[in-house]
């Protein structure tokens, strides 16, 4: 029998988050190994999710493109 689901789930919102989401953990490791990029990373939320310093998205994008990546930018 499926568990009853509460009608409204309690959540907390984290707004204005600068985040890089990679396809897999290896790619995230690759990004963290890049010194210039690692300096812009505040923390690793999960294997694939890196938190970026506020206001440093442009620098991160520039560095990703320098590395030969073609990141999809959401909310620019």
């Amino acid at each position: 029998m499926s568990q009853a689901v509460p009608a409204r789930m309690a959540v907390k919102l984290h707004r204005r988050v600068c985040l890089v989401l990679t396809e897999d953990a290896v790619l995230a490791e690759e990004l963290l190994a890049r010194k210039k990029l690692a300096g812009e990373v505040l923390g690793r939320l999960s294997e694939r999710a890196l938190l970026i310093r506020p206001g440093r998205i442009e620098a991160v994008l520039e560095e990703l493109i320098k590395m030969g990546h073609t990141p999809q930018v959401v909310g620019k």
Partner: peptide, 8 residues
Amino acid sequence: RITVYSSA
């Protein structure tokens, strides 16, 4: 492969 969210 990489998605960058500037203000999610």
